Amino acid sequence: MSVHSMTAFTRVEHAAAFATLTLEVRSVNQRYLEPTFRLPEALRGLEPHLRDALRKRFARGKVECTFKLDAADTGQAPAVNTDYLAELAAALEIVQREVPGTAAPTALDLLNQPGVLDSGHRDREAICAAARALFTRALDELEDARAREGEKLAAMITQRLDGVSREVAAVRALMPQVQKAQRDRLLERLSEARTELDPQRLEAELVLVAQKSDVAEELDRLDAHVEEVRRRLGEPGPKGRRLDFLMQELNREANTLSSKSLVAATTRSAVELKVLIEQMREQVQNVE
């Protein structure tokens, strides 16, 4: 079955001469895709690329991506990003011109600005290339983890679907007996009351009793929804929202069946159906 969970976690690492990159990706259930990134300054410019790559792989889930960059000890002093420093100086001139009297920052203030010091990261292109490759590897592992978890979800949902089918079959087999008992009970009450009804009126009363106890439509719809859930589980691509809707429909039919119940056996089946459907609904919340 092609079912992917939204819950998964992976941690990958890449050690190079210039630095060690570590990436943790954590995914939990969410109605839509909600990516968040925690990136070191050297990788800030990669966020649009990473976000786009993530959206191409996943449709739903809250996905937290945390990069850590530990620079290798090269024995060299941190380099100053002169281009960025020039941009800061130009911006400061505009601020001081537009807002006279603004205090100028000290040299130490400028050095403390993110991006001014390279902190030993000489080869930014190499770092970014390694980060992109590591992110692709992490997405591969996350997708595999979501698929493995999805197999477990599908197995649990299928097990409950089998239970729903058994309960529906049990109620269906019981209905002729229930309807006959209701008919006999009505005739017995009329006999005890020594009430005589004309045949047409009697037939109308019997039809009314049969209609009140008839749950054939509900049972048919339950079977149809079960088959639709099975079909959806086998389809490729995201399916969580559709499955959630089907759980609502299953629960609606189970409630109607419960309201029409006339004997303890069908009441027990209706309660069991609600339990099975609720268990499925809880699992469906994690399906992508």
Rank of each mutant, 00 (worst) to 15 (best):
E217Y: 07
M247S: 13
A216R: 04
P105Q: 00
Q182P: 10
Q279D: 13
R183G: 06
E196T: 14
E253R: 12
G120E: 10
E282Q: 01
E13G: 08
T106L: 02
E188W: 00
T256N: 06
M280D: 06
L197G: 02
N255C: 15
D144S: 15
S269R: 15
L23Y: 01
S269N: 14
F18T: 15
L21T: 00
S259Y: 02
A138M: 13
P176L: 00
A107W: 03
D162G: 14
R137S: 14
K239W: 00
L206Y: 07
D162L: 07
A53N: 09
L174S: 05
G61K: 03
K274Y: 01
D162M: 15
E188I: 03
T82Y: 13
D140S: 08
R232K: 11
R201Y: 04
R252N: 14
G115E: 06
F67M: 08
I127V: 13
M1G: 08
D214P: 11
A90L: 12
T7Y: 13
K62S: 09
K152D: 14
R268P: 00
A42E: 05
V168K: 12
A17P: 04
A138N: 05
A53W: 13
A72R: 05
K56W: 10
E87K: 00
A181F: 09
L273A: 07
Q182G: 09
G150N: 14
L108S: 03
A145F: 14
Q248K: 13
Q96N: 10
A90N: 08
R26E: 15
R221T: 04
K62H: 10
A107I: 06
L257D: 02
P40R: 09
P199K: 06
L233C: 00
G101D: 00
D140G: 10
A147S: 15
V171A: 01
T10E: 14
T158L: 13
A264E: 07
L88P: 02
A17G: 14
R146W: 02
R172F: 06
E98H: 03
L222K: 08
A204L: 10
S191V: 11
T158G: 11
A77W: 11
R281Q: 03
E196W: 01
R31T: 06
V168T: 10
M156V: 03
A129P: 03
A133F: 02
R137Y: 05
S2H: 12
R231D: 06
A90T: 04
R268E: 15
I277N: 07
P176M: 01
S213M: 00
Q211G: 03
G234V: 04
V95Q: 07
G234R: 11
T256D: 01
M247E: 07
F67N: 02
L161K: 00
F135Q: 11
D83V: 09
R11Q: 07
P238D: 10
A19D: 12
F245V: 13
E249T: 15
A270R: 09
P48H: 06
P236L: 04
V209A: 09
T266C: 11
L110H: 02
L33F: 08
L262I: 11
T195C: 08
R230K: 05
T256R: 05
D140T: 11
A19L: 08
I127Q: 12
L54C: 08
E167F: 10
V99L: 13
A53I: 14
V3I: 13
A265M: 12
E64A: 14
V80W: 02
